[in-house]
Design a protein around this nucleic acid. Structure first.
Lengths: 206, 206
DNA sequence: AGAAAGTCTTGACGACTGTCAAGAACTCGA
DNA sequence: TCGAGTTCTTGACAGTCGTCAAGACTTTCT
């Protein structure tokens, strides 16, 4: 392959990938509004500037589209709290900043979070999603563990739980807050914040 | 209304309620196998001994059917651990029995549990389910709190978290174990057990 | 300019959905 | 045994779904 055609095809590939990302964004918006069960390809197309047929030009089928969406979601999500880790100078700072960040994203990105839980639940039924979901879940666990282990370092106390347990516990708090928040409970976010602040020290040795 | 017709109509009402329960059982089985998104009324009927039309004789529409199913689920679920509370004679017993019971039901009733999480997630999108889901969630929280507060009494140490926080934390552990278990992770149940055993003491004052 | 490749729209297909009406089959008291 | 009331089946309806093929439009290369 000559350099020219190489450059060309790369440009085409880039454009192809770009449009895929564009459609995935429309799909993510639709999914986070309607949920997996009620999202159709036609609805996704209507939330974009294209017609419904184009989705099968860029994605083999619905599963590939949603799988791709999930990966886009992951990329957006996974580094969400890393800045907190690097800037916090004391255990107290880290704890408060983390709790505040969780409450903030629970309010701001509620639609996206409920989509994540929806898709993770689909993986309990449909095996086709399981691999990607487990991969994302693992990277979320790592993200949480970076918080917890940094908090442990700053506290001069080692963690007393495994990364999986730490993730499970905090994820449970967050999911509960999300449900309460979307149900209009005004105390949901404050309870999440105080719950996280209370919980973090419990994850360290006495 | 005479006594006779009263007795008759009550019998009819009973039979009516009985058949509703029967159909709800078929619906629950179907839902726990396929998940909310892929369960249709025809599929439910096919998992029963009736034809699809009968569902509209006993339920106004799909929402009423599923709502009714959720309430049946609740009745089955809510007293699941009460025996543990009443029979445990030491904090250590209670802690081990509870962890064992959670691991047991995570294995035995995995399909039903994933359905619960599926429906609770639907409530994040569809407001029609929200009332019933929140009610069940509240009663599950109470169930967990009976465990935790009894454990606190037997330990002679007061709880250090709210009922909501205790439920959120433990539910997070359980949900994680359920995902791992359905994905074939052989360590899922043992990790759930040890996670719960580790966590319970952390819910009490030092 | 013309050809080739890439991109997008349109319209259709078979299958499936929730709902409902007509009537068959059944139950049960008189 | 008859007939009224209850229960259930059948078949149809209007929609929606994922998928795909035919072709129009656009971009790119020669």
């Amino acid at each position: 392959m000559t350099e020219v055609t190489d450059r060309i095809s790369r440009r085409q590939v880039d454009k192809f990938a770009e449009r895929r990302a564009q459609l995935a964004t429309s799909a993510l918006r639709t999914l986070s509004e309607l949920g997996y069960a009620r999202t159709s390809l036609r609805e996704i197309a209507q939330n974009s500037e294209f017609s419904h047929g184009v989705l099968h030009y860029y994605f083999r089928d619905k599963v590939e589209l949603i799988t791709h969406c999930v990966k886009v979601y992951k990329a957006e999500c996974v580094t969400r709290y890393d800045q907190i880790v690097t800037t916090a100078e004391s255990a107290e700072d880290l704890r408060e900043d983390f709790a505040e960040a969780l409450a903030g994203t629970c309010r701001e990105d509620a639609a996206l979070h409920r989509l994540w839980y929806d898709l993770r639940n689909q993986a309990l039924f449909e095996e086709s999603f399981r691999t990607d979901v487990l991969e994302i879940d693992k990277s979320l666990e790592s993200m949480i563990w970076r918080i917890v282990s940094t908090y442990a370092d700053l506290s001069d106390r080692p963690p007393s739980v495994t990364p999986a347990t730490a993730y499970g516990l905090l994820d449970g708090l967050f999911q509960q807050a999300l449900l309460r928040q979307l149900s209009g409970d005004p105390a949901a976010l404050e309870d999440l914040r105080s719950g996280v602040v209370q919980t973090l020290p419990k994850l360290l040795e006495a």
